[in-house]
């Protein structure tokens, strides 16, 4: 299965993609994470290759990812995602600009079969309501030539995220899915908050991997 994770930059795609890949590996599946973000200079999934590799997830990174070189390009090994029987998670770059790199592979992606998860965050100004979020989704779909298959609500405020941050976003998530004509897969939540959230909603419990060097400490 090929799972593409796309969304507005800052929606939390990368953190979700890392969690999703690690969880599939925990289920005993062979997993490959393809970092297609050749737009952002930092905070890409390639920076977290240590934790991925140590948990058995293979990672394919852009040629000069995490270095000082500003030449965005994908390695030849990227083509192995179409040959493998592993579960493949593609972390697409942010916005329509970031998803452009995916467009080149759209035919092969369609041949292989895929799901494309559109990650959205209500607390990002450009996707703060259903209309804007769906407009973002459509521009991503246009540039990469692929259609999203489900919506993932990843509404959060980084370190300030609490139960009400999530609860306040649940209606928004349903609005985005309804307007996009897609199913809402689940809302992604920090593992520590699950007991404070309603029992009748679908939640995906995630850990926080993406952040600055001091956020991993205590600051």
């Amino acid at each position: 299965m090929l799972t593409i994770v796309c969304g507005h930059y800052g929606s939390g795609k990368t953190n979700f993609a890392i969690n999703y890949a690690l969880d599939k590996a925990k289920e005993g599946k062979r997993v490959m994470l393809a970092d297609m973000d050749i737009v952002n200079p930092y905070f890409t999934s390639s920076e977290y290759s240590g934790i991925l590799i140590s948990n058995g997830v293979k990672i394919i990174s852009p040629t000069f990812a995490t270095t000082n070189v500003d030449v965005p390009s994908l390695p030849a090994s990227f083509h192995s995602i179409f040959e493998t029987n592993d579960e493949v998670v593609i972390d697409a770059g942010g916005d329509d600009v970031g998803a452009t790199a995916l467009g080149r592979f759209s035919k092969k992606v369609k041949e292989k079969g895929y799901e494309m998860l559109y990650v959205t965050n209500m607390y990002r100004p450009f996707t703060s309501n259903a209309d804007d979020s769906v407009e973002m989704l459509r521009s991503i779909e246009r540039t990469c030539g692929l259609k999203a298959t489900a919506v993932v609500n990843n509404s959060h405020l980084k370190g300030l995220t609490n139960a009400s941050t999530i609860i306040d976003s649940l209606e928004y998530a349903k609005d985005v899915a309804r307007s996009a004509g897609l199913p809402l897969l689940f809302s992604v939540v920090p593992r520590s908050l699950i007991d404070q959230l309603p029992k009748d909603e679908y939640f995906y419990q995630a850990d926080v991997y993406v952040g600055t060097i001091w956020e991993k400490g205590e600051d």
């Binding site: 800052g10 209500m122 990002r124 309501n129 306040d168």
Partner: peptide
């Protein structure tokens, strides 16, 4: 919508 939004440093500076 809450008063706080999530912004990237560069875009926040531009908006400011």
């Amino acid at each position: 919508m809450s008063e706080k939004v999530l912004m990237k440093g560069n875009e926040a500076l531009a908006e400011a």
